[in-house]
Every structure is written in C-alpha cells, then in structure tokens.
C-alpha cells in the first residue's frame, strides 16, 4: 500500500512527448497547466481515502472490543447464577447452593415440629397419669370413708361395752376402762382419717388445677404446631416456587445469552464489509498516488509551477477534510461544548 505521494522517475517505457507544431504545443501547455492545477487534489483525495479507511477500521475495532466485553459479562452472569442455583453451589466459593439451603431449612423445620410434637405428647401423657393418680386418690377417699364408718361402729361398740360393763358392776370395771380406751383410740383414728381426707382433697384440687394448666398448654401447643406446620408448608412451597422461578429466569438468561452470541456472530459477519471496503479504498488510493506520480513526472516543470485549481471541487466543510486539505483556522475539538 502506498503511503502519501511518491514522486517516481519517468518510467523507461513511457512514451516521450512527440514534437508538435506551435499552436498544438500552446494548447498542450494550457492543458498541462490545468492538469498541474488538479494534481494537489489527487494527493488530497488519496490522503482523505486513507484516513477514512483508518477511521472505519478503528470504529470496527472499538465495536469488536465492546462485543468482547458484552460477551464476557453475559458469560460471567450466567456462570454466577448457574453456580448459585446448582447442586454443588458456587464453583469457587464456600456458599451453599439454593437447593441445599431449601433442603436444610426443610430438615430443620421438620425437626423443630417433631420436637414440639414430642413435647405435646409428653404433656398429654402427664395429664393421663395425673388422671390416674386422681382416680387412685378417689379410691383412697372411699377407703377413708370406710375407715370412718368402722370408727363410728367402734364407738357404738365401745359405748355398748361401757353400758354392759356398768351392768356387770365391779366385775365389769376393767372392761369399762378398755371401752373408754377404745373410744379414745377411735377418736384419734377419726382425727387422722379426717387429716388424710383433707390432704387428699387438697392434693386432688392441686392435681385438678395442674391438669387444667397442662390441658390448656397442650391445646395451645397442638394449635401452634398445626399453625407452624401450615406456615412451614407454605414457606417451603414459596421457596420452591421462587427457586423454580429463578431456574426459569436462568434458563431464559441462557437462551438470551445464546441469542446474543448469535446476534454478535451476525454483526461480526456484517462488520467484515470494512475489510473489503478498506482493501478497495487502498486500491483506489494506490491508483490515485500512481496517477499523481505519473502526471507529476510527465508534466515536469508545469507541475512544479502549477497553481491549485479549486473550481468544481467540493468545499471543505468538515474539520478533518479541512485539515487534510491544509486549510487552517481556529477550530473546536471534537466533543467540545460551548454555550453562548
């Protein structure tokens, strides 16, 4: 590829200018002078084409770099999400996967529920035992009543014995003393029976209130366990639904990533127009340079003395065009903002 203008020596095969009559020679001089005036435009056009080619190439390189960044970020995002949701957890992290987390939570909640159910069962059994103890107390009360009955009969018997002892006179005196003693012992026995009755009554009252408390606690626990079970089931269902949703989002992201890769592939194919365009531009610029070099050699002194002819050429309105054309002046840089 040629860079800039290269003045080449007259090629050996180039036909020398033939001898011509004066009028024709004059016309030729006019043509050559005019041609010489256009020469600077040839090199300018070549330079402009080369710069345009470079600009297109650097834009394409920028786009490609962006593609690389987009693709890398998409890959990383999918990899991170996949790692988070996978069974193994993050590949290089110590974090637990979402699925194991759900399993762990579920396991822990089931254990808590089981423990609560066991506690509830224990209090239910305690109530049952207290009921059994109450029944035993009732039997003791019944036995005490019998003892009371026996005591009353003993007193009656002792009273009859005293009467009989009185009838027997002096011979019954000892018997009377025994009867008095029997009455006394019976009274003591009745007092003990009354005390035991009272104790049993208190014990039964205490057992009754304990049973009530335990019953209330048991009912409350059962209700709470049931509520917890419903809440846990609901939470686990929600966690599983969220997990499924995340999986579906991930699947969507993977599909989107694949589509993105395909789109970038199409864009990469499309962007290759630049390679062909650059080659074409390079060939045109090369031909322009050759044309410039040949004309410069052919025109000789006329080319050196030629004045640039701008007539019929586009005005240089863009910064870069003016710069290539060598037109000076104060200009704002690209991206510069000035408020008036």
């Amino acid at each position: 590829m040629n860079e800039g203008i290269q003045t080449q020596p007259r090629e050996p095969g180039l036909t020398p200018a033939p001898e011509v009559p004066g009028e024709i020679a004059m016309d030729r001089l006019v043509v050559e002078t005019e041609l010489a005036g256009y020469l600077p435009h040839l090199s300018r056009m070549s330079k402009q084409l080369k710069e345009t080619s470079q600009q297109i190439e650097s834009s394409v390189v920028g786009v490609c770099n962006s593609f690389q960044g987009i693709a890398e970020r998409a890959k990383q995002t999918v990899a991170r999400t996949t790692g988070f949701l996978s069974q193994e957890g993050g590949k290089d992290s110590n974090t637990t996967s979402f699925e194991s987390l759900i399993d762990n939570c579920s396991g822990t909640l089931v254990k808590i529920l089981k423990t609560t159910e066991e506690a509830s069962e224990i209090s239910r059994r305690a109530i049952e035992r207290i009921h059994q103890m109450d029944q035993a107390s009732q039997l003791i009360s019944a036995a005490l009543l019998k003892l009371e009955q026996i005591a009353r009969e003993n007193r009656m018997l002792a009273m009859n014995a005293r009467i009989e002892a009185a009838h027997a006179g002096i011979h019954g005196a000892g018997f009377g003393v025994v009867a008095v003693e029997v009455v006394s012992q019976t009274e003591k026995s009745q007092q003990v029976t009354a005390q035991v009755s009272e104790l049993i009554k208190n014990l039964r009252a205490l057992a009754g209130s304990t049973v009530d408390d335990l019953q209330r606690m048991n009912d409350r626990d059962r209700k709470r366990v049931e509520e917890c079970r419903i809440e846990v089931d609901e939470s686990l269902r929600e966690m599983q639904a969220t997990h499924s949703e995340m999986k579906s989002v991930l699947s969507g992201m993977t599909d989107a990533g694949a589509m993105l890769a395909r789109d970038i592939g199409s864009a990469v194919r499309g962007l290759q127009f630049q390679d062909r365009t650059n080659q074409q531009i390079a060939h045109v610029a090369e031909d322009l340079d050759t044309m410039h070099a040949k004309l410069t050699t052919r025109l000789g002194p006329a080319a050196a003395a030629g004045i640039a002819l701008d007539e019929g050429f586009a005005a240089y309105t863009m910064h870069e065009e003016r710069r290539i054309a060598g037109i000076g002046g104060v200009e704002s840089a690209a991206g510069e903002v000035e408020l008036f």
Binding site: V61, C64, A71, G265, V268, Q272
Partner: peptide, 16 residues
C-alpha cells in the same frame, strides 16, 4: 494485517 479482522477472528475464537 487488518487490526479489525484480527479482532473479529480473535473474538470468535475466544468465544469458542
């Protein structure tokens, strides 16, 4: 010799 072509081919191969 084209930087952009190297970029485009490079991108494709790295993705592969």
């Amino acid at each position: 010799d084209s930087v952009s072509m190297r970029q485009m081919v490079g991108y494709t191969l790295r993705q592969g």
